[in-house]
Write a protein that binds this DNA or RNA. Sequence first.
DNA 1: TAGCTCCTGTAACATAAGTTACAATCGGGT
DNA 2: ACCCGATTGTAACTTATGTTACAGGAGCTA
Lengths: 233, 233
Amino acid sequence: MSDKNVKYSLTFIILIIGIMDSKVRDILFTNYKHQFNHDLLEQIAEVGTYHSFPENTMLIDFGQRTEHMPLLISGAIKILREDDNGKELFLYFLEKGDTCTMTFTTAPQIISEIRAITEVRTELIMMPLEHIQKWMSNPDWQQFVFNSFTSRMQEMLEAIDTLAFMNLDQRLHKYLLEKASIMKSEVVVCSHEELALDLNTSRVVISRILKQLENKGLLVLRRGAIEVLTQLV
Amino acid sequence: MSDKNVKYSLTFIILIIGIMDSKVRDILFTNYKHQFNHDLLEQIAEVGTYHSFPENTMLIDFGQRTEHMPLLISGAIKILREDDNGKELFLYFLEKGDTCTMTFTTAPQIISEIRAITEVRTELIMMPLEHIQKWMSNPDWQQFVFNSFTSRMQEMLEAIDTLAFMNLDQRLHKYLLEKASIMKSEVVVCSHEELALDLNTSRVVISRILKQLENKGLLVLRRGAIEVLTQLV
DNA sequence: TAGCTCCTGTAACATAAGTTACAATCGGGT
DNA sequence: ACCCGATTGTAACTTATGTTACAGGAGCTA
């Protein structure tokens, strides 16, 4: 578990940060005016709260309960899965426009199956779970929910493909490309140890494979960082 | 690709089999009266068509388009994923009450990401995709759709856990237990070759591990079949 | 500068899984 | 009875990945 740098837990943060409705409304109308109609935006603005988290903040953890659903405004979130022995596995990144659909249910609160950690400073709007269903009569919302579900499904399928059909060298390279894309920089700042945690393997193995990838000319190794030379298509 | 025994493609079957509405209504009211209210049942009965497929029938394949969504009445369906090189991977089984939610979208037709094959004789009701959204105003239907999504998510997560955190011997044992449960028999009828295809490995490896499991007393090997001794919890 | 921790490189070995090759056996059909 | 294909068993080898151990460098702080 690499939570040494994880700074706050969402549950507490929500209680602390409260920003007035006007800001929520502004942000919503700026970012979602093409996706949601005016009425829906107003409704979301009424119940949603704005939050901004620094990088490496754990938003939710396995088994933790939540009564909110996040709507991503900016930044990026890393989604992880963990097994009984505490071994982690990276699943996918969430970016603007995404929501954490794992949670959809009719229950008033849900128990998280995943861990979510911000990769960079991230802004989001939290909506109480109870409204998700209520708004389903709104076609824009319905579309949004369906699209979110479908996206998460696709990402899970991709995670499965990666695990089932790719070797570690390919998985590592893919991960670095995605991370570079998320960070908007070819230089991925992280240690071999952190990569090993996300890919559920050991540091030595990562070091070995990184060296191979460097020899192939796919990247350049630096201390505490990796320069990715090839681009994502 | 193990389609040597796959008998028909759904696309054709749908055109061939047409059973009168009364049967659909009877089946629906018998199987779903606790889940859907009367109005909804009537609406489903109006547009749904009943179908019965023998075991080992491919219902849908990768890249294939469909304008229908199945509602499972009896039997069991195996869901598979395939990579570019034709290598397969078992994902999970669907049973009564399930639907193939991968497909939810607002588009009038969808392209399948998975392959679905009946494990035993299977009865289902096919509903045109266009109604899925229309019915969302009905709370029972909404609940059903959400539950389906959540179930599929859970199954995908389990598939990921299995791939990421378990060795082949555990995966194989787990697969056999699930299959025995689906077939309602401790004797799983299938060759080592078929197991190798579903677990994306080779026959020799499966034979080797089966022998290990037999030595551990977890199962008994027969020609063309495996008797599973331990039960699913 | 000394001491400390974190990060990286590397070797040597262990284990899991994939590959190739071949033999033996079963069962169905002619 | 015989043939033949499908199924299974097994050996020998390769490759991928995991494990343990240790060394050296970078950067920080006293």
